[in-house]
């Protein structure tokens, strides 16, 4: 499973939507995800990938978070 696929799964579970709705270019706010939810998603990501991510306002779409995870896991 790719990082994107894993992340899409985490997001879909969090906001209770279909995983197919989530694309790399999907903006978090289009899924009704606000900064509080992003922080919760980041907490799940940290557990999943064993990394620590600083939450910041530049996490706008799903690919932004995928890139961060890739940076930290490489």
């Amino acid at each position: 499973m790719t990082i994107f696929e894993k992340l899409a799964e985490i997001i879909a579970e969090k906001v209770d939507c279909d995983v197919s709705e989530i694309k790399p270019e999907t903006k978090f706010d289009s899924l009704g995800i606000d900064s509080l939810d992003i922080t919760e998603i980041v907490m799940s990501v940290e557990d999943e990938f064993g990394i620590e991510i600083e939450v910041s306002s530049d996490l706008v779409c799903v690919s932004d978070l995928v890139n961060k995870i890739e940076e930290l896991t490489n």
Binding site: S35, T39, E40, M43, E46, E52
Partner: peptide, 10 residues
């Protein structure tokens, strides 16, 4: 502390 939900306070 990192495990405390951001939704805790609200």
């Amino acid at each position: 502390p990192r495990k405390v939900s951001p939704l805790f306070i609200p």
